[in-house]
Design a protein around this nucleic acid. Sequence first.
DNA 1: AATGAAACTGATAAGGA
DNA 2: TCCTTATCAGTTTCATT
Lengths: 153, 153
Amino acid sequence: MDIRIDDTDRKIMAALQRDAGRSLDEIAREVGSSKTPVWNRIRKLRDAGVIGPQTVVLDAEALGFEACFFVLIRTSEHESKWQKKFLHALQTRPEVQEAHRLAGDIDYILKVRVKNARAYDAFYQALISEVRVYNVTALLSMEEIKSTTALPL
Amino acid sequence: MDIRIDDTDRKIMAALQRDAGRSLDEIAREVGSSKTPVWNRIRKLRDAGVIGPQTVVLDAEALGFEACFFVLIRTSEHESKWQKKFLHALQTRPEVQEAHRLAGDIDYILKVRVKNARAYDAFYQALISEVRVYNVTALLSMEEIKSTTALPL
DNA sequence: AATGAAACTGATAAGGA
DNA sequence: TCCTTATCAGTTTCATT
């Protein structure tokens, strides 16, 4: 299950991150190779799960998602039963775009994208009624300065 | 520049978010329409900028990006000259995957993806030597519970 | 919205460095 | 082993109906 990733693989992935909606020929030209080897490498990386699904970036604001919150959560509960329920709630709710378990003082951070402040409140009320949390701080984004999923390969 | 987005448009975008690497025929089947109208709608949405670039999701861990920090920043400086410099620093540094200006107590939040803790420290030192900040708190992610860019259309 | 035609692309096979 | 070339079914793109 070990996979060797060389420089050409990295170049291909960088090219795909930049714009995955291009032909193999164009990608191949960009990385200085040709169709077949590029295709084989992409397949290899996909099979290994290094390259995941292909998506499009949508304009959240244009689609009415005008509010974005970062939510800092502290909890006193750390039993596996509680955690399971909490994780399930996060996975299920589509407004949760990111969720991380943290080291230290704060236990979890969420990124929550909603249409407006009222929708955030609805989310918040639903969450705290589902699982007990000790302390919640919501940080409201005023401006998205940067947003990318690209890794600096 | 106003664009009307109807239910079919939303279905198409939802389908593309799920998996953009499919043929028009498949997308059309999924949304219950056919090739030509779907193609015309996608083109319209792309031209309007609602549908943005196409990318691939890469496995950060597999590529050696094993550390992810959320960085909370407070600053005392609010002049436009400082801000310009700060924003430029964020835009330029590839380890910054997200940056938001916040309302309230904390001024900015960053999501920083790096290979390891040492790389984070290098980033941090470089940042504070470039621009003055009053207070920085780094939250270290132990586990990425959820990560998606999909909007719940 | 369906048809259809031309250009382009993805996917694979065969053979070479 | 990895690359190049050749091939062709499938796909995109777009004009016409």
